[in-house]
Amino acid sequence: MIAATELARRHRLRWWEALPWIASLACFFAFPNYLAFGTQVLITILFALSLDLVLGYAGIVTLGHAAFFGAGAYTVGMMAMHWGWNEPISGLIAAALVAGAIGLASGLVLLRTHGLALLMLTLCTMALLEQAANMGAAWTGGFDGMPGLSFSKILGLFGFDVLYYRSQYLYALAVLFACFAIVRTLVYSSFGQSLTGIRENLLRMHAVGAPVRVRQVLAYTVSAALAGVAGALFTQANGYVNLAVLSLERSAGVMIVLILGGYGRLYGAFVGAIAYMLLEHVLAKAYPTAWQLGLGITLIVVALFARNGVIGIFDSLRRRIERSAR
């Protein structure tokens, strides 16, 4: 019999997994003036994490993930604007439900295809939503979106402060933590394992009798719901929503974040989002063109040489060291 194997140990919590959360809390006290930025980073992490579930684990390449981010963002925006529903946590749940429903409906039809057709279809779905949001100006504010939304206190205790984002930051952190717990559980479950199976070899997955389509649609739906939560957080934290949440730039951007961090691994989203947004924050304002140039070259290099992102590089280094130690 084989003793405790790598698989049997994998899901256990390791000491360093506490680090990102401790660091996030530390940032709250250390950089009180950068919490607005920090909140955006947390939202991006959540968004990238949701993409990781489909792209990294289930191997579904999508260019339209912003569709769900936008769906969530518009859900809370419209609820606040038209029904005066300002309670944030129920808003998140509603956003998750709406985005999840869209994910389920589109997943059921789109996931029949694969490859290029799927890529195009995800793109089209997003463009469709974007145009719908643009057209339904009475409901969505059209091109200008909905500025100046306000939300009531979180749990009736902590108000959203417009200037310092103190409660936004902690709120986003708490939501991210909860969603991360969900994703982590999923990824290490048998379901998560079968998703990686689908990514690695579809033919074989059919041959072991797995209901491949059902699994893919489920993963797509959960991922859509999580992206919806990220979108809702965006609207709530910033107090506005506009068409940019549904753009190709946002879809491509989150993909870049995830790839740079490393997909198919839980903490890739963290590393990618922090690295990307810090660099963008510092560089993009001072030298926007140089930022774009650097980003472009980085992407080319990553595509050619480092297919698993920053974490991937460390991973293969570790593997190499282990091998030579053996």
Binding site: H11, Y188, S189, S190, F191, G192, Q193, R215, L218
Partner: peptide, 8 residues
Amino acid sequence: GGSMLRAA
């Protein structure tokens, strides 16, 4: 294979 909660 579809179980989502318990770790594999």
